[in-house]
Design a binder for these strands. Sequence first.
DNA 1: TCATTTATGACAACTGGTTGTCAATTGACG
DNA 2: CGTCAATTGACAACCAGTTGTCATAAATGA
Lengths: 155, 155
Amino acid sequence: MTRPKEKLLADIMVLVFRLNGRLLEQGDRLVGELGLTSARWQVLGALALAGRPLTAPQIAAAMGITRQGTQKQLNLLIDEGLLQRCHNPSHERSSLYILTDTGKHAFVEADRLCDLWAGDLGQVFSEVMLITAKDVLGELMNRLDRPLPRHAQVG
Amino acid sequence: MTRPKEKLLADIMVLVFRLNGRLLEQGDRLVGELGLTSARWQVLGALALAGRPLTAPQIAAAMGITRQGTQKQLNLLIDEGLLQRCHNPSHERSSLYILTDTGKHAFVEADRLCDLWAGDLGQVFSEVMLITAKDVLGELMNRLDRPLPRHAQVG
DNA sequence: TCATTTATGACAACTGGTTGTCAATTGACG
DNA sequence: CGTCAATTGACAACCAGTTGTCATAAATGA
């Protein structure tokens, strides 16, 4: 872990862990007064981005988490009146989920706040820096979707 | 959220969320056979990196999480024999923590596995790309340590 | 068509974080 | 000194994710 690239990679990983924590924390603060949390906001975002009703497993795939974790948030969002179940003509058990008017309003408000917040945040970076950062993280993500290499095991 | 930099920033944030999940998952797999988890490994790393005994709040600060969260892992690591409490001459209640021989061995093994793993992972990136990515994430982290700007609030 | 595998929702247990509270220690200040 | 605020550990409640199991619905293939 002392060669330069490995050291850089390790530093990036630590930053990812900390950024994850901070982003969730700031996100919770940002949308807290709208009755949202970071997790619920992400669910609304997945539906809004898709622009069409989605099933729970589809939302889970879009968010990159398990269907069970997503289902918890979906059930809560229904209870809170931000989402609505509707019948899925092509599947008896697996409902489609859509935003209610309240849900749409909350998401639009959250998006507005996020826009203001991100405006400040991005100013110091050049576009090319941001693109590079995104490319590195994206390629890391691709490589982590594959299993561990054979030699990196105890066996 | 449609201007180019804001869009890039939003993409980076989503990648941070997903990478966090994947890194923890792969980390758990990597060190699982050593009786470690990602969280316990990070604690051992904080102590190993410091090279001297640390108190629970010091370890928490090094890891960027709360002292209560750290304390949970510390107590478990003591139970498992990887850490040892020792008396803190300058504080009656707040013990110092050190690695036991078992703990040192587990950490060295984990580091070896991590090295092999990271070797593959970093190959496709140029050093300058990694540096840029690290700089962007680091600067984002700095900016997130400050409170929300005034205008990004509902009031 | 029928059998088997896969997908799905509900539920439970667990992990690793968070916040909050309380009591005891520490440290700073009058 | 004595007092009072900050630090610390223990504990509890909670949040957001995980895995696993079970029953049922859907899809696949002989």
